[in-house]
């Protein structure tokens, strides 16, 4: 079986202007949402208490809200998730209050109303920790970008490094933009997913670059655009099948992984879809515009210096 029986090279580079405009547009849209709506940061970053409780019958959300209001926690959010029996409570950190014991007192209050309530999980993050996590997250992204650029610059050439990082940072911004636009919860695991997908899509660009380099060596003549077109066409089948397989795994997590893995899988899905697009249709045009040529990649054999007698 074969999905892609392409006889002629597809002239991807002549669509360069179109594809980059589409990228630019989605990019601007993503940035717009990031600034206008902002990320819905999880408790891990903002600090606060997240409690999951389970009732033996459907939970009475209004009653729970009332009880929390009475405790002076009117900023708390109460949300049913999964089934009607599960309730998620989000309690922001209060100044000068001993937040660590807050979950205990809330649970005791809930227990008075309905003795059958059970704690499924509690997560409390103090304000100090949240700040550290944000810093570490930014450090990690910086580390990945610099590390990948150095590697690509050594293995290929600086033009490829710049193109790959630009294309993939554009993916990261678009994932963030989606999370901002739909107000999905941005947690530490989502950050992990984004960094993993960053490494993964760069790998996509690497495959295309690798082929470009090989083509420069093997195909005599032909313009840079033709060589890039051939490289993309030749690797396209592999690109789509690989990503399809990875996506199958990710969808399996989205459907079977439950709420804990939901946003993780969602971030990966978006990342993989845009990863295909950007590494093929964004990275390669950038490489071309940066002026890559055969001389950049194929080392000229050094002329032997003959001894003059």
């Amino acid at each position: 079986m074969e999905f892609f029986k392409i006889k002629k090279d597809i002239p991807f580079m002549s669509y360069g202007r179109l594809t980059t405009s589409i990228s630019l547009l989605t990019f601007i849209l993503a940035v717009f949402f990031l600034f206008s709506r902002g990320l819905n940061l999880s408790v891990e970053f903002t600090g606060g208490t997240l409690m999951e409780v389970q009732y033996s019958q459907a939970a009475n959300v209004d009653q729970i809200r009332g009880e929390l209001d009475k405790m002076g926690l009117d900023q708390a959010s109460v949300q049913v998730y999964g089934s009607a029996k599960n309730v998620m409570l989000r309690l922001p950190n209060k100044q000068n209050a001993n937040s660590a014991t807050l979950s205990n007192s809330v649970f005791n209050t809930l227990k008075v109303g309905s003795p059958d309530v059970q704690i499924k999980s509690v997560e409390y993050i103090g304000p100090q920790v949240g700040r550290d996590l944000v810093n570490n997250g930014l450090m990690a992204i910086a580390f990945v970008c610099i590390g990948i650029m150095i590697y690509l610059a050594l293995r290929f050439e600086w033009r490829f490094a710049v193109a790959a990082i630009l294309a993939n940072m554009h993916d990261v911004v678009i994932i963030l933009g989606c999370f901002a636009a739909f107000q999905w919860e941005f947690s530490l695991t989502v950050l992990a997913a984004i960094l993993a997908v960053l490494g993964y899509s760069v790998n996509e660009s690497v495959v295309v670059f690798d082929r470009i380099r090989e083509n420069f060596r093997t195909i005599r003549g032909g313009t840079v655009a033709q060589i890039i077109n051939n490289a993309i066409t030749a690797t396209m089948s592999r690109t789509i099948i690989t990503h399809g397989c990875t996506e199958m795994m990710v969808l399996s997590m989205l459907f079977f992984g439950g709420p804990s893995l939901h946003y993780f899988a969602l971030a990966l899905t978006i990342g993989i879809l845009f990863g295909i697009y950007s590494s093929v249709l964004v990275a390669s045009p950038i490489v071309m515009w940066l002026g890559v040529s055969r001389e950049n990649l194929v080392k000229q054999p050094k002329r032997k210096e003959e001894a003059v007698v």
Binding site: L133, G137, F143, V144, I148, T189, L195, G199, V206
Partner: peptide, 20 residues
């Protein structure tokens, strides 16, 4: 090549990640 780039991202997560 492609595994090295993925590994770079993995190592960054290992170095700066905490908890989950």
């Amino acid at each position: 090549d492609s595994n090295v780039t993925t590994l770079i991202a993995g190592l960054a997560l290992l170095a700066f990640g905490s908890g989950p």
